[in-house]
Design a protein around this nucleic acid. Sequence first.
RNA 1: GUCCCCGUAGCUCAGCCCGGAUAGAGCACCGGCCUCCGGAGCCGGGAGCACAGGUUCAAAUCCUGUCGGGGACACCA
Length: 502
Amino acid sequence: MLVERTQNPAHGDYSVTLPLKLARTLRRPPMAIAEELATAMALPAAFGRTAVAPPGFINVTLDPAWLQAQLAPIAEAGEAWGRSELGRGLRVQVEFVSANPTGPLLFSHARGAVVGDVSARILDASGFDVQREYYVNDQGRQIRLLGESIQARMLDRPVPEGGYSGDYVAEIAAAARARGVSPDPTVLAGLGIEWVQGRIREDLARLGVRHDNLFLESSLYAGWDQETMTKLAALGRIVHQDGATWFKSDSGKDEVLIKRDGYPTYFWSDILYHRDKFEKRGFAQVVDVWGADHQGQVGRLKEALSVLGVDPDRLVVLLVQLISVKRGEATVRMSRRAGVGVSLKEMLDEVGPDAVRYFFLLRSADAQMEFDVDLARRQSSDNPVYYAQYAHARLANVLTFGAGARAEPAMSRLDSEWELELMRVMLRWPDVVREAADAREPHRLAFFTDELAAAIHRFYKNCRVVTEDAPLTAARLLLSRAARTTIANALGMMGVAAPDRM
RNA sequence: GUCCCCGUAGCUCAGCCCGGAUAGAGCACCGGCCUCCGGAGCCGGGAGCACAGGUUCAAAUCCUGUCGGGGACACCA
């Protein structure tokens, strides 16, 4: 039987639409079915009353006494409130950011960083064994160009075609000179990668993002490549043509694996890398967070995995849509490839990590978005993140204020619309986490948090917590503790601070 | 030409996967609220499902098409 939440609280907490769906097959009026079903239903004690409403809904309402009885356990559970073991310790990897180590992170990378990080936090809270990985393209043309660019800088030569020319290149060159490193492009590339990775780690740390593992692309070519190539050849999937090595696809559109110049394509390294995740390291599931501009690569990678005997459904690719940054009247579209735009560091300086995270989480990953820098800066105190943080700070404050109270809480007196509404909202928290995990949609956390904060503010404004009435005060303090626990956990799962004062 | 994402209030976005009862939020705008736990707040107000068909008792939600915006279709990364 389908039970769903009502949109309108006046209709109760849950509704059953089965009578409407049965009307045709039973050839009876839906209202009559509803009446009969409502009488026959055996409901758990949590439900107070049921009502039948036209054209054939059965509405059920949670019993206030049941709601009130949930508060103490929530406050008691603390950080555990909302966590579950639904994942049963299944090994899952979330791979995100993975930007080439050829320059500092751009603001556009931050969206994937936040989506990946919070996805990992959600899976972790749901009882999965999560590893966060960063894949480092530490070889190939771009890395050679990085080395040559640093060399050019050291020797005061022009930057090579397609090379890198940012200030950081000069910094690396200066550091190399200071350390007496010889101007050899290969050595300098290694130095450059090290420097850039350090800088990336720094920026991510400021954003509250960390990885458990760095995986080097170069490690894929120590035998794993031959082994995989042999396997594909045995499967009849390898074709040599025009001096290159191709993957024979069922789509009719073959793809190059090894170029005529002997270097591997990204497709080839992707195959090796993902086969490594599943076959060598044994992850049950892998979540990749990619920019939308890589969308075309999902299908071919899954086909290759499938050919190699890996169930492609074990790989989930979250495609994060591109963002544009608006400054004044100018809008700059940012793509990973464009290589131009605002640096992450700059944006962290301007807006702060909490606002950046919350702002990204207030959009679903598959929607393009525009980030208005001037707005984010100018109206920082109106930013939704402060609304949520303030709700937490208010509760922290009132709990301190009422700390001395000693009385048996009169739970049944928490019966105003604001108190009951706050309980209803906070009790949804475990469902929100589960749904966010199932759907891989971190943004659900932010929308829930916003709703919870609103319920907290309304409760606070309409129900004075600390009064002469000791039993009522005790009950409202307990409600405040449960609400604070919930919003602290929600903010925490998003990696956003939950301050006691602000 | 083919494929993917998007089109909901003046602006930025939820809701669509899994169809239900007056479609939500923030910002902006208008009007109220500080003798009392923090006014970064609360209360009230106007305004919207791109378009056209179809399926259904019921469509923002499912299907088809059209029109817009973005992205992808390399021996680039």
